[in-house]
């Protein structure tokens, strides 16, 4: 078979785009290792002092821990609701369910600042402002689209005759779900869960609106840090964040590859 070799223009533009994506991220790595006391490139030597600051400061650690717990709770909400929604739409599969699936993508389509203003109004009445549960709920609901998309994709590849076969052999709906459908779409659910987790983990806009003092997530602390003082510790945190998120994405990639086998 003939393969087309990319021309010089395609090669150069691909390179430029890759640089464009990577440069802003890679610049924070040297910055995080600066020996200075303000946000800058290292002058005389590389230093890990800012990492030490982050990993020993009770504020940073509290925020990391809080962000982690919120992301776990939000992922649970998004995975359960999103998976059930996708399975329901798949099973009924009418024109109305296509509409529901489209509706589920709204949190991605609507600007999060608009969404946050709406949440602020409702959460005030429900006493959910500045609460762990409030943020977890908000992140969970806005994470649903990622799960709906990945699970729907997994279900599209699922042979509906397997479900018929299971039911024909006497399996109830729950048994069919547990033993036949879920094992086949687990990679899709895990993938959606990873995206929902990342979404909550670095979400800032909603948190700015519905949390103030008690709930102080990691992105919120970075934001405040940048507004108040240009502490290089922020760069260290950013590097840690990038490493963590990249790890999650690699995990997702690995799961996908396993599924493809």
């Amino acid at each position: 078979m003939m393969t087309h070799q990319p021309g010089p223009f395609a090669r150069i533009s691909a390179g430029v785009v890759a640089l464009y994506l990577l440069l802003p991220i890679s610049i924070i790595i040297p910055v995080s290792m600066t020996d200075q006391r303000f946000l800058s490139l290292p002058k005389e030597a590389l230093s890990l002092q800012h990492y030490a600051t982050v990993l020993t400061s009770p504020e940073w650690l509290a925020s990391i821990w809080q962000s982690f717990l919120i992301a776990i709770a939000a992922t649970a909400i998004a995975v359960i609701a999103g998976t059930l929604c996708a399975i329901g739409c798949w099973r009924l599969s009418r024109r109305s369910t296509d509409l529901i699936r489209a509706l589920m993508l709204l949190p991605i389509i609507i600007p999060s600042i608009v969404y946050a203003i709406g949440l602020y109004r409702y959460f005030a009445g429900l006493d959910l402002l500045d609460r762990f549960m409030g943020v977890a709920l908000a992140h969970g609901v806005t994470g649903i689209p990622y799960v709906v998309i990945t699970v729907s994709t997994a279900l599209a590849a699922f042979d509906p005759r397997l479900e018929q076969a299971a039911r024909g052999m006497g399996a109830s709906l729950m048994q069919t779900l547990r033993w036949v459908i879920l094992p086949r779409i687990t990679p899709g659910i895990l993938s959606g869960g990873i995206f929902a987790f990342i979404h909550s983990w670095d979400e800032l806009v909603i948190v700015l609106f519905i949390a103030s003092r008690d709930v102080f997530t990691l992105p919120r602390r970075i934001w405040d840090g940048i507004n108040e003082n240009l502490d290089p510790a922020m760069a260290a945190v950013a590097v840690l964040l990038v490493v963590f998120t990249t790890g999650l994405l690699l995990l997702d990639l690995m799961l996908r590859r396993r599924r493809a086998e």
Binding site: D159, R161, L162, Q164, A165, A166, R167, G168, M169, G170, A171, S172, V180
Partner: peptide, 17 residues
């Protein structure tokens, strides 16, 4: 419903899990 009929079925393409 099919799950309560107690019929065995061999599907086209077999539908093995």
């Amino acid at each position: 419903p099919p799950e309560r009929r107690d019929f065995g079925m061999v599907f086209q393409g077999y539908a093995l899990f």
